[in-house]
């Protein structure tokens, strides 16, 4: 039989950084399931949540993943991603909960932002679902290397009963002793990938041979250029007057709301090529592809305070 992919026994008991990261993430997930009553995993169909789902699968093997997954659906989806989501959920036989922004718009819970982007209005929809299902722990795929305000985020990030994050009320985290205690109504956001970088994620995807939605690999797409970024032309993001679209070879580095996630020019159509590209890339994932984060230096911090992931 093949050696297990993860652990290669050796006389020096060497542990590669990917093995160490995997072991830590698995430990974190097991702590949550042992200590919290109603955990849920936020699954966007993006690469980080795909890795997280794989880690959850490993953590409880041979049992099934002991919590549901939840997708906060902005209604602005890449069809490839939705398809992928449904397939993955089926394979793993986990329960999928969809918290729908379009439904919330219809019910009047939120109102469309003037610019039509839905990143910001996701937050109340997420919080309503947390309340409805009384989730006390939410696994999120955020990494600390993504953005400055994340660098200080705890692995177990405490949210008050309004779902808000207060940098001053975060608990000190020592050793691997995570404090997941909450009162009724409060919750924890738990980030098992805190210590992973974008490159670690890609190396892991390669090592585990994880499937990703096609849009992560280079493909031809009709795009327009705005503020130096390439946006796909689609129903959520129609061409503006006087804009010229053209077909370019692109891939996505993150998949978010289709109305504000940009693609990058790329010829990387295999995982090896993507890794090569990521290793020499000089622009952060968010800087390159998230129109909404460019608004202000403190944009992410503000969104987190309001209860964003």
């Amino acid at each position: 039989m093949d050696q297990p992919a993860g652990y290669r026994a050796s006389h020096t008991y060497r542990v590669s950084h990917l093995d160490a990261l995997e072991a830590e993430s698995i430990f974190i997930m097991r702590e949550v399931v042992a200590e919290c009553e109603r955990p849920v995993l936020l699954f966007s169909g993006g690469k980080d949540s795909i890795v997280m789902l794989r880690l959850a699968e490993k953590a409880f093997h041979p049992a099934r993943i002991p919590f549901p997954v939840m997708h906060v659906d902005t209604g602005h989806n890449f069809p490839e991603v939705l398809e992928f989501r449904d397939q993955r959920v089926d394979e793993l036989n986990v329960q999928l909960i969809v918290a729908s922004v379009p439904e919330a718009l219809q019910a009047g819970l939120v109102r469309e932002a003037p610019d039509g982007t839905r990143n910001r209005i996701q937050t109340p929809v997420l919080l309503a679902a947390v309340e409805k299902y009384r989730f006390d722990a939410l696994f999120g795929g955020a990494r600390r290397d993504e953005e400055k305000a994340r660098a200080k985020e705890r692995v177990f990030s405490f949210r008050d009963d309004f779902g808000q994050w207060d940098p001053k009320s975060q608990r000190p985290e020592l050793w691997s002793l995570y404090n997941g205690r909450v009162h009724a109504g409060e919750s924890m956001r738990v980030f098992p990938l805190s210590n992973w970088t974008e490159l670690d994620i890609w190396h892991y995807i390669a090592r585990e041979r994880l499937r990703l939605p096609e849009i992560y690999y280079a493909h031809d797409r009709e795009v327009v250029e705005r503020d130096g970024m390439l946006y796909a032309v689609n129903e959520y993001l129609p061409k503006r007057e006087a804009e010229q679209s053209r077909v370019a070879r692109v891939r996505y580095r993150t998949v978010g709301d289709a109305s504000c996630t940009a693609a990058v020019r790329s010829d990387a159509d295999t995982i090896e090529k993507v890794i090569e590209e990521v290793a020499v890339t000089r622009i952060t994932e968010r800087g390159a592809t998230r129109g909404d984060d460019r608004v202000s230096e403190a944009a992410m911090e503000d969104r987190k305070r309001e209860g964003y992931f």
Partner: peptide
């Protein structure tokens, strides 16, 4: 000793196993 990747011959820190 089990992991999702199969049986483990030796477990040592910081491995997460069953």
């Amino acid at each position: 000793i089990d992991s999702a990747d199969g049986p483990v011959g030796e477990a040592y820190p910081p491995m997460s196993v069953t």
